[in-house]
Design a protein around this nucleic acid. Structure first.
Lengths: 340, 340
DNA sequence: CTGAAAGCGCTTACAG
DNA sequence: CTGAAAGCGCTTACAG
């Protein structure tokens, strides 16, 4: 493989001149520039990334820490990954994908060894074990998901409180007085999946404030259990007229469940979900939903991360915690409640 | 960050001794080894990956080229990615994830700049534009998917011909005499998704040999179109008693379609799919299916790639083309045909 | 506008 | 069993 030395030799200049001609970091005569460029073309020269990283302390690589947990719905994770990956590439960065079960060790490994210039953490828990490691790392980090302690990192998340209120308000306004909220499995909450109870608590509070009944249930994140959970819910609360779904697997299972029971939305039951538009299309989900905006969140996280990496942000500039305002995408699955 | 120089100084030895003590590549006195190890611990030393890569010409990183094409079903791709990623990690390698729309440029970039020691290509087409680039790269490559020309690369794929025969034979043995095969959209074939017609041609041939009727149709890879395609198929061929599904989106949509039409498998219709067990669980698909084994294929590809990278394979050892034998996972969705 | 030199942090022949 | 030195391929002050 050709090196910058080969290029310099072919162009009849020094290595430093060749380097500067390529980087444009100092004035170069038109003639020399042309000779260098010709040499690059002829030799098929591409800089060695490792050597450049060593010289500049910049790898142009971003670490992406994804975790595929047994009790979460993998296809939903993919969307965040693609949002991060695509934005990174637009900004000139490559992605080191880390899907280790042990995220803490992996995070330490890639930061300590300087494989990455910065890190994006997906699926952040309330007390995420990866955070202390990230804080002590030399590289900046951006999170998708809100932890209890946000010091030292930039944080991006959907405003799940607002999402909960929005779901309740929307159905309340249509006249619903008894609804049920389907959340993730208990262990997601126990593990610190804060978004579950953030949405749930805000929904409960909104329901209380409006004097309406809101039942809350956890449902499995796996088929076919989740279908049975949904069926059980409808059996237990026959007077429910509105369903709020904060569980991707449940949303994917609902069409079949409703079919089996001969129910139609919105005439028998109003339904509002919380998932991405892409997810809705993939699974053909006909329900109005709060857009969870994974691509947008991934994009925001990478943008801010790159700003920090490239020093466009003063080192003492405070870290941000930014929420995406939930928006309801109307797919026509809500209406006035059926007569009692 | 501590360097090997700091470690050497703290241990009172030379840098080379420190390096050898850590690599174990030459005999070291017990005393020195201990002092070096203590220094490493105290300083929290981790080797700089870029520097090591420059010195050894080994990055310990594998490039993973995934493409998320508009007309393919993204969740299915994820499984291959995880198979590759997990196996790589077990073998000590990290994954550089490349999801660029323009796979050729990206491939050239990561190989020319020596960011990776080898490359895994996913979703390989009949005449894949990435292959010429891979062949001229310095690093070895492994494919998941069978191209027309396999020279210079190791290839792993499901035996789609055998899968097609297996599907037809299975239903034929149960007594079915008229079936339909649902394939991917036309443009997947046009783009060179050879697995589509490899399975289809073998199925057609098996049907001819046994004197039975096999209709073939392409269905969309998106909801809700695919559901309509399936409905149209059932309208067009009312005498079909067996359905072969080589299209993940169609498999995911089928339960709803059958429900709508009041059909049950296997009493009204026998169904055999082709997807992974993980996929079946995620989508709660109740159909017997040919296991597509994405995790196993990813694992095989990485294993062989690492053997080449690490030179466990003679440079002149011929490249392999290895097929995974399809196996039918019985989920009880096939039986004798309904009476005419 | 250009060149010679130092340095990034490792590994590994070469010498003893 | 250990050390001094060269080299991997870049970038970037320093000098002119």
């Amino acid at each position: 493989m050709a090196t910058i030395g080969d290029v310099a030799q072919a162009a009849g200049v020094s290595r430093s001149t060749a380097s500067y001609a390529l980087s444009g970091k100092r004035a170069i005569s038109a003639d020399v520039r042309r000779r260098v460029e010709d040499a690059v073309r002829q030799l098929g020269y591409t800089p060695n990334a490792g050597a450049r990283a060593l010289a500049t302390s910049q790898t142009m690589v971003i670490g992406l820490l994804a975790q595929f947990l047994e009790d979460e719905f993998a296809p939903a994770m993919l969307q965040y990954m693609l949002g991060v990956s695509n934005t990174a590439r637009e900004l000139g960065y490559d992605i080191l994908l880390v899907s280790d079960a042990d995220g803490t060790r992996a995070l330490r490994r890639i930061t300590d060894s300087r494989m990455v210039d910065g890190v994006v953490l997906l699926n952040v828990a309330e007390r995420d074990e990866r955070l202390p490691i990230l804080r002590s790392a030399a590289q900046p980090g951006a999170l998708v998901g809100l932890p209890a302690d946000c010091t030292g990192v930039d944080v991006f998340d959907l405003d799940f409180e607002e999402a909960g209120r929005l779901m309740v308000d929307h159905l309340h306004r249509l006249g619903h007085r008894e609804m049920a909220l389907v959340s993730q499995p208990e262990h997601v909450i126990e593990r610190g999946g804060a978004y579950v109870w953030r949405l749930q608590n805000a929904a409960l509070e909104a329901a209380r404030a409006r004097g309406i009944t809101l039942h809350t249930v956890s449902a499995s994140s796996h088929q076919p259990d989740v279908g049975q959970d949904l069926s059980a819910l409808l059996d237990t609360y026959p007077d429910v007229t509105g369903l709020l779904i904060n569980n991707e697997a449940a949303a994917a299972a609902l069409p079949t469940v409703l079919h089996q029971r001969g129910l139609t939305a919105p005439s028998d039951l109003s339904v509002v979900g919380r998932y991405s538009d892409e997810f809705a299309r993939t699974f053909s989900l006909p329900y109005s939903s709060i857009e969870s905006a994974p691509d947008r969140l991934g994009r925001m996280a990478v943008r801010q991360l790159v700003r920090r990496i490239e020093g466009d942000v003063a080192a003492d500039e405070p870290h941000v915690v930014r929420f995406v305002t939930p928006e309801l995408v109307d797919r026509g699955s809500t209406g006035v409640p059926r007569p009692a």
